[in-house]
């Protein structure tokens, strides 16, 4: 894969939460570089720090050790520059706003004009195939559609970096396949850098140019796999030996980093 300037650079990154039951090492010695235009998946069992790492990039958590830069500056600066769009595990749409007003939320906050808002709403809703649902309220849409609306919201202000925290985790397999395909399509069109947290091995392998395998207690990176799959990926690429080989390596990485005996 061609990697240009690095978007995220972490070295020796650690984060320890002080809790009543003693310190919890959510992240420990994470070294990682994410290049521009990459699609990086973070995979690992619960508690491996993949979501925490995403939140550190987003300046929603402060690291307690090491350094991290986003677009060459501190994460706080990137947040102030509105350098990234964040898609949460749940759609997190505001229930009192229609779909178009939800997509408009970041645009309102960032001070775009009404006309500009309309243009961007139409464009991003089209990108996630939600045209025609502008006036609907979130509860009138299915879970998959709600999550697509939340992706549209993250795309609306044209940040180059998209941080996605298990966005399809709560959806069924059929919807998930469909959205994965759409996401790859979107990534190809927009040439964004995407950081994607997931539980699912096929999802990680199907989507990514780079797969970061993590393990818990303390949360750390156990393997980093550069995908050899082509950028153009039809759904049935998942039956190819190349795909299965990468999936096997991810599975190995997960096993190695995680002793099931102590569960």
């Amino acid at each position: 894969m061609t990697t240009h300037a690095s978007v995220v650079e972490a070295s020796g990154l650690g984060l320890t939460f002080e809790t009543a039951d003693g310190p919890v090492h959510a992240l420990s010695d994470v070294n990682l570089t994410i290049g521009k235009g990459e699609f990086v998946s973070f995979i690992g069992p619960s508690g491996c720090g993949k979501t925490t790492f995403l939140r550190v990039i987003a300046d929603l958590e402060r690291p307690t050790a090491g350094t991290i830069t986003v677009n060459g500056a501190a994460p706080g600066q990137a947040r102030k520059d509105r350098a990234y769009g964040y898609v949460f595990q749940a759609p997190a749409l505001y229930p009192w706003r229609t779909i178009e007003r939800n997509v408009a939320l970041p645009l309102e906050i960032m001070g775009h004009s009404r006309a500009e808002q309309q243009k961007r709403i139409a464009r991003t809703l089209d990108m996630v195939n939600l045209s025609g649902f502008e006036k609907k309220y979130p509860w009138q849409l299915s879970g998959g559609m709600q999550q697509r609306a939340s992706i549209a919201r993250a795309l609306a202000f044209d940040a180059d970096l998209l941080l996605m925290d298990e966005p399809f985790g709560a959806l069924d397999e059929i919807v998930r396949d469909h959205l994965n395909e759409q996401l790859l399509d979107l990534w190809a069109k927009t040439e964004k850098t995407i950081c994607f947290v997931t539980h699912s091995i096929p999802e990680a392998v199907y989507l990514s140019t780079k797969i970061v395998v993590m393990s818990p207690r303390p949360g750390r990176v156990t393997d980093m796999i550069e995908s050899t799959l082509p950028r153009e990926r039809p759904l049935d690429i998942r039956e190819t030996p190349q795909f299965l080989e990468i999936a096997a390596r991810v599975r190995e990485g997960l096993k190695a980093g995680h002793s099931y005996a102590d569960q």
Binding site: A58, L60, R79, R82, Y86, Q89, A92, Y94, L105, I109
Partner: peptide, 14 residues
């Protein structure tokens, strides 16, 4: 408001 709704505002630097 849920934490996730507040986090969203924070990502927009609202």
């Amino acid at each position: 408001p849920e934490a996730i709704h507040l986090d969203l505002m924070r990502t927009y630097n609202a």
